[in-house]
């Protein structure tokens, strides 16, 4: 493998890890959201390297685009970019770090014992994952899951509207106030 390739992969991994750390350590939720956008775009670059351009573009538009706009909108709506530092639960920080380290150790041990395949993406052909082939697969073999996904999205939309709507005013209270007679 050429030196330039190694350099590119390490740079991408570095950006992914640093933006993730920025996400979980930044005090301001807006900064966290922007770090997450950086993370998503870098992972989209990795998708392109892996021969998945359609997924990469979907990642940029869906994740880095619409979902993060939704996040930023809610952050601004609630004014929740900086919460007051509250007293954490006793031992929560230590326990959280311990559990994450345990997960990391477990996965490393699993990969070491099981052995990972050494080569990824042996020269993916350009026709491997064009939008055409993905569309054919999506509308033939995965047609039923596709329709169910549409149902899930519709249900989520209705649920979101239902949960955030204004409570319907009382019938009597909704009547317009009758203007008093003889009042100048």
């Amino acid at each position: 493998m050429s030196l330039g390739l190694i350099f590119m992969y390490s740079a991408l991994a570095l950006v992914v890890v640093v933006s993730g750390i920025g996400l979980i350590t930044s005090r301001n939720a807006i900064y966290a959201a922007l770090f997450l956008v950086l993370n998503f775009i870098t992972v989209a670059l990795l998708y392109i390297v892996l021969g998945a351009p359609f997924i990469a573009l979907a990642q940029v538009t869906v994740y880095a685009g619409s979902i993060m706009v939704l996040f930023l909108f809610v952050i601004m709506l609630l004014g929740a970019e900086q919460l007051p530092i509250a007293e954490p639960l006793r031992g929560q920080r230590v326990l959280g770090i311990l559990l994450a380290a345990a997960f990391l150790a477990e996965m490393v041990l699993f990969v070491l014992l099981r052995g990972a395949p050494t080569v990824a993406g042996q020269a993916v052909s350009p026709e491997f994952s064009t939008p055409t082939t993905i569309g054919m697969l999506l509308f033939e073999r995965y047609l039923l899951p596709f329709e169910m996904t549409a149902g899930v999205l519709l249900a989520a939309t209705v649920g979101a509207i239902f949960m955030t709507r204004q409570p319907r005013p009382d019938r009597k209270g909704a009547l317009p106030a009758v203007p008093e007679e003889g009042k100048e």
Binding site: V17, M107, V108, V111
Partner: peptide, 10 residues
């Protein structure tokens, strides 16, 4: 795995 662990931490 590292990304997932960072998500757990967050």
């Amino acid at each position: 795995v590292v990304m997932f662990a960072m998500g757990i931490l967050g």
